[in-house]
Amino acid sequence: MNLRSVPAAIIATLMMAALAACSDSGNESNSSSANAENEGQNWRYAHEEYEGDVQDVFAYKFKEYIEDNSPNTVQIHRFGELGESDDIMELTQAGVLQFVNQSPGFTGSLIPEAQIFFIPYLLPVGDEKIVSFFKNSNAINDMFPDLYEEQGLELLAMYPEGEVVVTADEKVTSPQEFKGKNIRVMTNPLLSETYRAFGATPTPLPWGEVYGALQTNIIQGQENPIFWIQSGGLYEVSPNLIFTGHSQFVTAMMANQEFYNGLSDDNKKLVQDATAYARQYIFDYVPGLGDKMLKKIQQDSEEVTVTRLNEAQRQAFRDRAPQVEAKFIEMTGERGKQLLDQFKADLKDSTAAEE
């Protein structure tokens, strides 16, 4: 099924049906009795991507570990089955879902500090450097969990999905060439600030509207990692791929905190071990994925162009990053500044460790 063509009413019906099913089994799945644990629980997990995409691979590795090492089961809901990203977050906070994968691009309205990932040219785009950072960062592993806890969420993992690539209706090599272009962004104030700094007009849209908006020229471009551009068919309606080197796409896997806190020690350890297993698999899986998906795109369409900005061209965009950083601090205050300082220290440490 091509989810781009599913009417909103059908998605709403699917969501209502899933809600009813979840409600019927909610007491059983959250039971803390010894008998329920022995028999196993059914846990529900939603993410934002299509079959075979990075979040889907992570979710199924998590499911694999849980089901191989316990009587528990995990039911996966892919993009569109329960609505958009905001919908699955609401369902998780309400306790209808036990686990969720959501990009900080959408979590930014709940957790402003999570927008740090949208400061351009902050994170490296090289695979080895980014993996080292996520494994060892104090900001990621020590500071972020407290921020998510405030929203009733147990942060279990953050991981990168690949370099962000811009697609547009024509080649773009400078901020001046972005002028007058409506570029789709997630509903994230700081990402909007990034594209304003880059010279474009940021246009927030939910994912389900992006393909049609590109097709009808309501927007003239968007950004995503290559695998998502390929699986979502975005290159069909936005064929000019521009590697600006400005960002990595990051996602977070979370649990409803009340559910998580109610687990036995054994099940908590099971969840933690399953998360570590899935995250390590993704650390090994993502490097090289972008190149592989780019080849698929180029094989499928002769209209696709690939523009990789040279250092001088990137510098023109990089020079505009400080105003985005200043906006981040303005939005998040002292806590955001402390997080940013720790980010920079962690990035420096990870680079030094490689050298």
Rank of each mutant, 00 (worst) to 15 (best):
P175L: 03
I76A: 03
C22D: 15
L241Y: 06
E67H: 03
L339H: 06
K344G: 00
S109V: 14
F62I: 08
A168Y: 03
P7N: 06
D68R: 00
K61F: 07
I11C: 10
F317K: 04
A197T: 02
S103C: 02
M293G: 07
N136S: 11
G232A: 12
E177L: 04
S192M: 13
D349G: 09
R314F: 01
T107M: 15
Q280N: 13
T305A: 01
Q272F: 05
T251A: 02
Y195H: 03
A12L: 14
E334T: 14
S301A: 01
H47F: 09
D146Y: 10
S109G: 07
D142I: 15
S137M: 07
F243A: 00
A139P: 02
Q93K: 11
F328A: 13
A157P: 12
G26S: 13
I130D: 00
A274R: 09
V286R: 12
A59N: 00
A46W: 07
G336H: 11
A255Q: 04
A168C: 12
E90P: 01
R308Y: 09
A9H: 10
Y277G: 01
Q151K: 15
V172G: 09
G152T: 05
L191S: 15
L156H: 08
E311H: 11
Y60G: 01
K327I: 12
R4C: 09
A94Y: 02
K344Y: 12
D169W: 10
A345Y: 03
E223F: 13
T187F: 13
V185W: 05
E48Q: 13
S231E: 12
Q248T: 00
G336W: 01
N42Y: 06
L241G: 04
N42R: 14
F198M: 08
A316W: 05
Q115G: 13
G40K: 02
I130C: 04
T305C: 00
Q342L: 07
F317M: 09
A326Q: 15
F317D: 00
L339A: 04
E149I: 13
I88H: 03
S231P: 04
E236A: 08
F118G: 07
A12G: 06
M1E: 04
I111A: 02
L123I: 05
Q75E: 15
D341S: 09
F249A: 09
A20Q: 14
E209V: 00
P175V: 11
F259V: 13
Q102W: 04
G212Q: 06
D87Y: 09
I10M: 02
E170Y: 02
P225V: 14
G26M: 15
G95F: 08
A114Q: 05
T92W: 05
A274P: 07
E39M: 15
Y281A: 11
M143V: 10
Y121W: 07
E258A: 03
G221R: 12
N256Q: 01
T251M: 07
T203A: 00
L155W: 00
N224Y: 13
L156M: 14
L263Y: 01
Y65F: 15
N138E: 15
E37S: 12
E330G: 10
D68Q: 12
E161D: 01
E354G: 14
E150Q: 14
